[in-house]
């Protein structure tokens, strides 16, 4: 028989990843459930996905663009510069939030059925992809309104999209596991999201930022994974932006992201066997 299962304490399963693959159907269906439920009951579900990035962009454009006079030197409309940063940022913040709350929100499944637990946080991120598509449609609308033609680099966008996914999935995975053990971790997430917005190049650009930081300390700024992600998005969307991949600090962001993903998976796997007892 092909399904030989041995249960022992502390046994890390040899076929963990195979198991995860075997349960892919569950992953599809849980993602589909989350999407369906999110947009089924609320008319506002979709409207909200449109309003949120749009209103934030308007505020940023007004405050930073008009009042602080940022982006005046650029030929590209400031609204598009902001939106190019907003797009990955919103994706990050929504996925991080959904991901961190996913396990606790599915308590009944976890205490009743076995499946690789990683499916739950992974599928919860899927709903934020929908919001991402909606935001992307708004971006295209902005292109049309401003008569702006994006550069050819836009075809590289999926790469940074994967980067954004990893940047939110890593910390999200760890946070959702910690959330099972210490419920007050959920209070930390809004803080990360709020604080992160100000240290990430959403309202400003990396170029303006690095001018103001002494070069010895620039690496600290790049420790934020979202710096790499947003720079990548800007490069894809805004004309004449330097390619971030040609500069070494980009790899600090990427490195931190990959490290966080590895750490989170490692910690998650260590904790997941006892989720049912703690939750």
């Amino acid at each position: 028989m092909d399904h030989r299962i041995i249960i022992e304490p502390g046994r890390s399963e040899k076929n963990y990843w195979k198991d995860l693959w075997r349960y892919r159907e569950l992953f599809y269906i849980l993602s589909w459930r989350d999407v369906k439920v999110k947009y089924k009951q609320t008319v506002l579900g979709v409207v909200w996905a449109v309003l949120r990035p749009l209103l934030t962009m308007i505020v940023f454009t007004f405050v930073f663009g008009r009042m602080a006079g940022m982006g005046a030197q650029s030929t590209v409309p400031y609204a598009i510069i902001v939106f190019a940063g907003m797009l990955p940022w919103n994706f990050f913040s929504i996925s991080l939030t959904e991901c961190s709350n996913s396990l606790v929100g599915n308590t009944n499944l976890i205490t009743k059925v076995y499946f690789p637990r990683m499916i739950i946080p992974a599928s919860s991120v899927i709903t934020s992809f929908i919001d991402f598509f909606i935001s992307f449609a708004i971006l295209i609308l902005l292109f049309i309104v401003y008569g702006y033609m994006p550069p050819v680099e836009i075809i590289y966008m999926p790469l940074f999209w994967i980067f954004a996914f990893l940047a939110s999935f890593g910390p999200g995975l760890y946070l959702t596991a910690l959330n099972v053990k210490y419920r007050d971790f959920r209070y930390i997430i809004p803080f990360i999201v709020q604080f992160g917005l100000f240290i990430s190049p959403v309202g400003f650009t990396t170029e303006t930022m690095v001018q103001k930081i002494p070069s010895d300390w620039q690496w600290v700024y790049y420790l934020n994974p979202m710096v790499g992600v947003i720079d990548g998005f800007r490069w894809c969307i805004i004309k004449d932006t330097p390619n971030p991949m040609l500069h070494y600090p980009f790899y600090i962001s990427l490195g931190v992201t990959l490290f966080l993903v590895w750490l989170s998976i490692y910690q998650f796997r260590k904790m997941e066997k006892n989720f049912a007892d703690m939750i």
């Binding site: 399904h3 299962i5 041995i6 249960i7 022992e8 976890i110 049912a276």
Partner: peptide, 13 residues
């Protein structure tokens, strides 16, 4: 397999 045992072993086919 919802929760892990503290001791012992189970073999299932």
């Amino acid at each position: 397999r919802i929760t892990e045992p503290t001791t012992g072993r189970i073999e299932m086919n």
